[in-house]
Design a protein around this nucleic acid. Structure first.
Lengths: 126, 126
DNA sequence: ATGCGTGGCGTACATGTGTCATTGAAGAGG
DNA sequence: CCTCTTCAATGACACATGTACGCCACGCAT
């Protein structure tokens, strides 16, 4: 249950997300996938990937002379850990207040609401 | 919209939460209010409060020879900023996936579910 | 061969964070 | 008053994080 590996920093998470999207990628590919509003130097990406590996979030193999990285921890896991942590720190462990916040203070479209209701029903008869 | 003040670190948030609860307090009072599972040195609390003030989250006045701190930014605001940030970096800005996660992957009690449904209805006819 | 792009690896370095130790002055007791 | 106690204020320090440079090796097109 405890998050055995150390937590991701902001930048590391950004890079990890890209890697999840790519399934498997070289530094260059991750670098190329960076959104325009977050330019990073090639080496910076390299550093992040190295640190991600050191922290146990990704693995890599050397293919020829190129290192290929791929995720080792699934997004779901990281999401769980991150959200748990946030709920803990911000709401003392209660998730309902977070729900309330989301519903009341953030824009939810009508589709979102419909979908939500569906989720609730499904959750209901289980 | 932009979070003009720099974000709170983990420890800073812990202390800020205590201060929100106390409305107004001296270093010593905050220190005394620390939960048993998170002991911090008096000076450490002092440092956090100082940094919180530097970041603009709290203010203080010297009353006699004692400094009294009080919140300057409301919890709601910090919550909004923090959650926005998390939704952004973890779900690309969509809040529905976070909802889904909360409903499906975290334990919600029956009361929580009932409450949720009420929230949705209220939200509905508005 | 020579020089250029691609890429790995190690290194660097400023700033942010977690956590205290030390300093220094205001009030209490004699 | 002078010393002792008690805190507030400041300094310090190690580790984390954001961001990048530099050097070197390889392979390909002059």
């Amino acid at each position: 249950m405890a998050p055995d590996r150390s937590p991701l920093s902001r930048g590391e998470l950004d890079v990890a997300r890209l890697l999840w999207g790519l399934k498997s990628a070289t530094v260059r590919e991750v670098h190329a996938a960076l959104p325009d509003d977050r330019p990073l130097d090639f080496s910076t990406v390299q550093t992040y990937l190295r640190r991600l590996e050191a922290k146990g979030y990704v693995t890599s193999v050397l293919e020829g002379r190129t290192r290929v990285y791929r995720p080792r921890i699934r997004p779901k896991t990281v999401i769980r850990e991150t959200v748990d942590d946030l709920v803990e720190r911000l709401f003392g462990g209660e998730s309902l207040p977070l729900m309330r916040h989301l519903i009341e203070d953030r824009g939810l479209s009508d589709e979102d609401l419909a979908e939500l209701r569906r989720l609730l029903e499904k959750r209901d008869d289980s």
